[in-house]
């Protein structure tokens, strides 16, 4: 059984960075980059690396559908609704990096196995990928009644899509904190910081747990979780120890990217593409194992 062939729609920053991560995945084979601008950096780079390149968007991909088994969509929520319908009809697996959220949310270290068979999965938001693992880890040790995350990213790492629709970040992340993190109530805050040199993505997770004095269990659950995220984002780390104040627990995280296409400070973008690649790799692994059996 060969590797699953990967298509990426959207040859912008996210799509381009993703390409490099696919190259490192054991069960995936980078195949096709799809864009709408033949001169885009992403298409040029894909071509240079010997991949198929399509510059007339989804129509072009549909004509050559046999090139791909699994498709990442790094375009927009609006375009994704259409892409998803067309691709799933052809039996292609779809990984959604837009805020469309048609399929279930997936945060690899929290609920990877639950949705490997879904036709379409959604990668939540960058802030969600960086913080929901921690909420989930705390919730495994002690019921989380309320969880709030504050994601601070370098202004240069927040693209025009995020900026034009910042409420979607807030809403989607809050929802996923509840749904995947397991908090009874979730809240998300995002802050853009224009400092020069750009700051590395920082995330603070504040939660209210149901019981006090669960410090050891909570800390050990968080530490285990950090290791599990580091498996696909090596630059993910906790700053200091978790801070306990009665029922309140605060955890400080820093996310340094792998520096594939984005500069390392853009941990917010890196964790999105790394998590998406991780999900696709697991899907491919599962299919490959299934066939072998």
């Amino acid at each position: 059984m060969g590797k699953l062939k990967v298509g990426i729609i959207g040859s912008g920053n996210i799509g381009t960075d993703l390409m490099y991560k696919i190259e490192r995945s054991d069960f995936l084979q980078m195949s096709t980059m799809v864009g709408i601008d033949a001169d885009s950096e992403g298409l040029k780079r894909a071509k240079d690396r010997g991949y198929h390149v399509i510059d007339n968007g989804i129509e072009g991909l549909l004509e050559k559908a046999a090139l791909v088994d699994i498709v990442f969509d790094a375009t927009t929520a609006k375009a994704h609704a259409n892409h998803s319908k067309l691709l799933t009809a052809l039996g292609k697996k779809v990984i959604d990096l837009t805020p469309a959220a048609i399929g279930p949310f997936v945060v690899p270290s929290a609920n990877l196995d639950e949705h490997l068979d879904a036709p379409n999965v959604n990668m939540v938001t960058c802030g969600g990928q960086a913080t929901i693992p921690i909420v989930h880890a705390i919730n495994q040790a002690c019921t989380v009644e309320y969880a709030e995350i504050v994601a601070t990213v370098a202004s240069k790492s927040a693209g025009p899509g995020t900026r034009a629709n910042i409420d979607e970040f807030t809403r989607t992340t809050s929802r996923a904190i509840e749904k995947i993190g397991g908090a009874q109530k979730g809240k998300a805050i995002i802050i853009l910081n224009p400092a020069e040199p750009p700051i590395i993505m920082r995330d603070t997770i504040h939660v209210l747990v149901k019981e006090e004095r669960k410090e050891e269990e909570i800390t050990s659950s968080i530490e285990k979780m950090i290791n599990s995220v580091q498996d696909y984002v090596p630059g993910y780390r906790m700053r200091g120890k978790p801070v306990f104040d009665g029922k309140k627990v605060s955890v400080f995280i820093e996310v340094k990217g792998a520096g594939d296409f984005f500069p390392p400070y853009s941990g917010n973008l890196d964790i999105m593409t790394a998590a998406a690649a991780k999900v696709a790799n697991e899907i491919a692994k599962k299919q490959s194992t299934f066939v072998q059996k």
């Binding site: 504050v150 601070t152 802050i191 910081n193 400092a195 700051i199 920082r202 400080f252």
Partner: peptide, 17 residues
């Protein structure tokens, strides 16, 4: 010096620590 912006209250604790 770190060019903190409005809303970054979480940074205060870390700097103090």
């Amino acid at each position: 010096r770190m060019q903190a912006v409005g809303g970054q209250e979480d940074l205060i604790y870390e700097v103090a620590r």
